[in-house]
Simulated assay, not measured.
Amino acid sequence: MSKPLVVVAHPSLNGESRINLAMAEVARQAGLPVHDLYACYPDFRIDCAAEQARMAEASALVLQFPLYWYAAPALLKEWLDVVLTYGFAYGREARGLRGKPLLLAVSVGSPEADFRAEGRAGASLDELLLPISHTFRYCDMQLEPSYAIFGVDRIDEVGLAAAMVDYRRRLGALTASALAEAQPVC
């Protein structure tokens, strides 16, 4: 039985991000395949066929990334542009992603209070993630409520441990949901 695929897009996963590194490790410990885009494609030359095969095989998709200037890192955007092609991700005959759950797992430097209409960001995190959400909605994926860890620049070890327990729970729920909702693709 296939498992959710965790696609990580952090330009310095093993260097500067203890949060995204911890999240990736939680996914690995849960037995999920973790695909590090920056490790695989440092030159931004994405193997479309290989990526589509990974996605087609997965029961669900998790996009894990830090929020940079209210958007995803550059390689994730490039990956979306290259991999989500007509006939695979969208279009009448497209079956690569249809009906699969999608979870956006985002790390954010600012505190959660900043992500309100009256907050510093002027919008909620979900509002800022709309371009990505709508992209996958167009691909007929089932959007799960996003998962976010806020204030990562100031999170202590206790807070990090609690966030990882919560993330493990979300991945477990996604895995159970993907297995329960899996339908044969014709």
Rank of each mutant, 00 (worst) to 15 (best):
E157A: 15
Y38A: 01
P145Q: 14
S110D: 12
M1L: 14
L179V: 03
A173N: 12
C40H: 15
V34M: 06
R116H: 09
A148T: 09
F65T: 00
R18I: 15
Y68D: 01
E93P: 01
L21V: 00
F136H: 04
Y68A: 02
S133T: 13
L179S: 08
G119Q: 01
Y147D: 01
S177H: 13
N20R: 12
E181I: 07
P184D: 15
A53T: 05
A178M: 12
A163D: 03
S17I: 02
R170T: 13
A163M: 08
L171T: 02
A72M: 11
G122R: 09
E57D: 05
P4G: 07
R95Y: 01
V108R: 06
R169M: 13
R168H: 09
A56S: 08
S177W: 10
L130G: 00
R137A: 15
R54T: 03
P4E: 04
H35D: 13
P111I: 10
R137C: 06
A27E: 01
W79C: 06
A9K: 03
A173V: 10
A24C: 10
M23T: 00
A89L: 12
E181Y: 11
S110P: 03
V6L: 05
P73N: 15
L128F: 11
A72D: 00
L128C: 05
A22G: 12
C139D: 12
A180Y: 06
A163T: 06
R137F: 06
G151K: 06
E127W: 05
I132S: 07
A121E: 15
A74L: 07
A50I: 00
L67C: 04
L128S: 05
D156W: 08
L102H: 07
Q64M: 10
Y167T: 12
A163F: 06
G122D: 08
S12K: 11
L75C: 07
R54W: 11
P42G: 03
G87Y: 09
L103E: 03
H35F: 14
G87H: 09
E157L: 07
S59K: 13
Y167R: 13
Y167E: 04
R170E: 15
A105Y: 05
D47Y: 08
R92K: 11
I19Q: 09
A123H: 04
I132R: 03
L76I: 09
Y68R: 08
A178P: 08
A161W: 03
K3S: 11
V82R: 11
I149T: 10
V62D: 02
A22D: 05
L171A: 08
L61D: 03
D156L: 07
L125K: 13
A94C: 02
L179M: 08
G15R: 14
P73A: 14
P66G: 13
L143Q: 11
E112P: 07
V185R: 12
F88T: 04
G96H: 06
L80I: 14
Q183W: 04
A56G: 01
R120E: 10
P101E: 09
R154I: 02
K77A: 02
H134K: 09
L32M: 11
S177T: 14
E157P: 00
R169H: 15
A50K: 01
T175Y: 01
E25Y: 00
A105L: 07
